[in-house]
Every structure is written in structure tokens, then in C-alpha cells.
């Protein structure tokens, strides 16, 4: 029942996304705009400040993530479908997992296009250790989205939800951003620092474990008024 419900919700979200491509298209474009803004700020005499590419990549991911989360739950708010989801006899946490997987999937797709773009524009050697980079991106995205999905779901009913999501989300996910940026920077060095990157992947995995567990634990009491 749990896995099937999560899968049903996940597939529904992906179907909507594939049909409209709305989140992906707007998010990607927004991420690109963010990248340009950073280029203006950080490029001097045609060259980028050291480590800037890693920072730009993760800030773009964080912005794109907020946008994706907001959009995903705006869809559930639009015709009050969130209420129908919560009234399903399935365990509530399964709904959370389904939404989380959909957000992670959309974000990973965005990153798939964002990473080569940043590597190209800033001449950064991001792809020297693709395995570790993927591990960083996947664990980082899950960490960001696990907190974000819970908060966005709670905020569906709140006033000024658009403002409050980043206000709540960014301070809590700072460790993810630090780990992502430092890990990516370690991989983009002339000689990639594998132990360092591995350490950050482990930290992110621990973060994911703690916060996914916490979210599963708190989702049910949070969603009843």
C-alpha cells in the first residue's frame, strides 16, 4: 500500500510535468538567468574567481529547487487536490514520498542540463570524476528536496507561502549547500580531491537519512489542523 501509493503520486506528477513541461522549462530558464547574474558579479577580465563555478552551480540548484517546490504544490492547491490526497486511506507519509520523488526527478533533470552549461560557460573541470559528482548531486538534491517538500506541503495552507518557503528552507539547507559547493569545488580542482568529495557525499547521505526520517515522522501530524 505504501509503495504503491508513493508510486501512483510520483507517476501522476511526472505525467503532468511531461505533458506541460512547465516546471522544467521555467526552472531551467530561471536557473540560466541566475547563472548570468553570477557571471556578471564574479567574472573579472574574462576570468572567473576560483571555485566560483561550484558556487554558481549550487546556488542555481537551490533557486531552481525553490521554484520547483513552489510550482509542484501550487498544482495541488489550485483545485484543492491536496485535500483529496490527504483523504486517501493510504499512509500519509506515502504521499510525501511520492511528491519528494517527483521533485527530485525534476530537479535532477534540470541539473543534467545545468552542469554541462556551467562547466562550459565558466571553463570548469566539473566532469573529471563523474561518479562522485553524480553522488554529490543526487544526495544533495534529495537533502534539499526532503526538507523542501515537507515545508512546501505545510505552507500550502499558509498565508504568504511564496515568501515563507525560501525563508524557512535556506537556513535549514545551508549544510547541503556547503557540502555541495565544497564537494564540487574539490572535484573541479586541477587534481581532484577525492577523499574530500567523498567526505561531503557521506555528510549529505547522513543529512538525507536524518531529514527524510524526520519528515516521514512529522508529515502526518503536520497535515491535520
Amino acid at each position: 500500500m505504501f509503495a504503491r501509493t508513493a508510486w501512483t503520486v510520483f507517476r501522476k506528477d511526472l505525467t503532468v510535468e511531461v505533458r506541460t513541461r512547465e516546471t522544467l522549462a521555467t526552472t531551467l530558464f530561471f536557473a540560466l538567468s541566475a547563472v548570468i547574474v553570477f557571471a556578471v558579479a564574479l567574472v573579472r577580465d574574462g576570468r572567473v574567481v576560483a571555485d566560483a563555478a561550484a558556487g554558481i552551480l549550487w546556488v542555481a540548484i537551490a533557486f531552481a529547487g525553490t521554484l520547483t517546490l513552489g510550482r509542484t504544490f501550487e498544482r495541488e492547491r489550485y483545485t484543492d487536490t491536496l485535500r483529496a490526497l490527504l483523504l486517501a486511506p493510504a499512509p500519509r507519509a506515502a504521499i510525501y514520498v511520492g511528491k519528494l520523488l517527483a521533485v527530485v526527478a525534476v530537479l535532477l533533470l534540470t541539473e543534467l542540463m545545468l552542469v554541462p552549461l556551467v562547466a562550459l560557460l565558466f571553463d570548469a573541470a566539473l566532469l573529471q570524476r563523474p561518479g562522485l559528482l553524480v553522488a554529490l548531486l543526487v544526495t544533495g538534491t534529495i537533502g534539499f528536496a526532503s526538507v523542501g517538500t515537507l515545508f512546501a506541503a505545510m505552507l500550502v495552507r499558509a498565508r504568504s507561502r511564496d515568501v515563507l518557503l525560501p525563508v524557512l528552507l535556506y537556513p535549514i539547507t545551508i549544510p547541503v549547500i556547503i557540502a555541495g559547493v565544497r564537494g564540487t569545488a574539490a572535484l573541479a580542482q586541477l587534481v581532484p580531491d577525492e577523499p574530500m568529495a567523498t567526505f561531503w557525499v557521506m555528510l549529505l547521505a547522513a543529512f538525507d537519512t536524518v531529514f527524510v526520517t524526520l519528515a516521514l515522522w512529522t508529515f502526518d501530524p503536520l497535515m491535520t489542523d
Partner: peptide, 25 residues
């Protein structure tokens, strides 16, 4: 302050997440 009705639970979640976040930070 700005969450409207039901924001006490929201704030509770943020505080719990914040507490567990301390070691990670």
C-alpha cells in the same frame, strides 16, 4: 508572525528541523 492560522505547527516543524540541523551546521 506571518504564516496565518495553523502556523504554530509550522513553527514547531521548523524548530525540530533546526535542532536536528545543529550537528550538520
Amino acid at each position: 508572525r506571518y504564516g496565518g492560522p495553523g502556523s504554530d505547527k509550522l513553527a514547531a516543524a521548523v524548530a525540530i528541523f533546526g535542532m536536528f540541523n545543529v550537528p550538520f551546521v
